[in-house]
Amino acid sequence: MPKRPYDLPPLSSLVSFESAARHISFKKAAAELNVTPAAVSHQVKALEQDLNSVLFRRHHRGVELTETGAYLLVSLQRGFEEINGALDQLRARAWKTSVTIRATTAMSALWLTPRLAQFWKSHPHISVSQIVSDADEIEPDCDLSIHYGDMSSDTGLCRALFHDRISALASPRFAEQNRISTIDDLAALPLIHLDAGGTDWTDWQDWFAALGYGGKLRNSHRVNNYVIALQAAQDDMGAVLGWEGLTRSFVETGRLVKLLRETVSSPRDYYVKLQPHASEQARLVFNWLAASSGRKEGEAESAGARRPEASAR
């Protein structure tokens, strides 16, 4: 038989001895281990034979540790304490494993982070980390990823978060200084253009075209980050396109206002995707995010009809 890496007697004998030595009683050790006192005595005798040493002095009224027994007890307790500490850490890590979510800067700042704050209040035992990136590549180690696109063409387990409408927004001061009642009025004013390469985000040209306007647009300010675009609008620099799911808090708090009643349906959905290697904790976050967006709890593979590219309301 192959040699064992550790030259140890049977663990059952070590456990029985440690309990008997700690209690200075075979009877109490038996109760703790849910065995008979005779079984404890048998295990201790087997250990003494293996070590060729006397570990207990046996008397009519009980037992007492020998010097060898006391030395072994201290050594075993140190070893058991280290094992117990390692197991506690592994048990805690198994449930507190961090869940990673990949999202764009805009999605993270405007939609995801406020919801994760609510998630942590009801699930403090789960740590959630965000990978914030506007690049197309998906991090290989992320558990979840949030996308703006055609969910029906994606693979894997996906759940829709929300389908947006897009409005023209600006600061209250800008709206007051520029009386806007028609599409033509808006087209003549400073517009904040978002240059987000590699995305399917609707731009001003698309938005106006969806509302039947084909004239010229004022080319005013250009930024490559949606959060910056919203800040520029709050600073009275011009009008910005507002995805309602991302900008709801700006409108509700009055930091931005709608310039026209007309809105355009977003050509894409926001959805969350669960990676195949994701843990049970990641699946819990996945279901919670979908439920918090107002969708049904039942999971479904990515599928569904495409909505119209744009429509006016």
Rank of each mutant, 00 (worst) to 15 (best):
H42M: 08
H60F: 08
L55D: 03
P37A: 09
H60A: 12
E82P: 00
H60Y: 07
L76C: 09
D50E: 08
L47W: 14
L72Q: 10
E67Q: 01
G79H: 00
L87T: 06
Q49R: 14
L47N: 05
A38W: 04
L90G: 01
Y71I: 07
V44Q: 11
G69P: 13
K96T: 10
G69I: 12
V40K: 05
L47D: 15
E82H: 03
G62S: 15
R78N: 03
A94K: 15
A46W: 10
L65W: 07
G62R: 11
L72S: 07
H42D: 09
E81L: 04
A70S: 15
N84A: 03
N34A: 05
P37R: 03
R57D: 03
D88T: 08
R57K: 13
R78A: 06
V99G: 09
R58M: 15
Q89E: 01
E67S: 02
G69L: 10
R61T: 14
D88W: 11
L51K: 11
S41I: 05
A70N: 10
D88Q: 07
G85Y: 01
G85W: 00
D50W: 09
R91E: 11
L72Y: 02
L90R: 11
V74K: 07
G62A: 14
Q77V: 04
E67G: 05
Q77I: 09
H42Y: 09
R61P: 09
K45Y: 14
T68Y: 14
A38L: 08
L55H: 13
A38C: 06
S41A: 14
Q43L: 07
I83E: 00
Q49G: 06
G85Q: 05
R91C: 05
A38V: 10
Y71G: 00
G85M: 04
S75E: 07
V35I: 11
H42V: 09
D50T: 09
E48D: 15
A86G: 00
V40R: 06
R57N: 11
A94F: 10
T66D: 02
L33P: 00
N84L: 01
H42S: 12
A46I: 12
A86V: 00
L55E: 03
L90C: 03
Y71V: 12
Q43G: 09
R78C: 03
G69Y: 11
K45D: 12
P37G: 01
E81C: 05
L55N: 06
Y71W: 13
N84K: 06
A46K: 13
A39F: 01
E64P: 09
F80T: 01
Q43P: 05
L51P: 14
Q77E: 04
L65K: 15
K96F: 09
V63F: 00
L65I: 10
Q43T: 08
E67M: 03
K45Q: 15
V63D: 02
Q43A: 15
E32Y: 06
D88K: 15
D50L: 08
V35H: 04
S41N: 11
A39N: 08
R93T: 10
V63I: 10
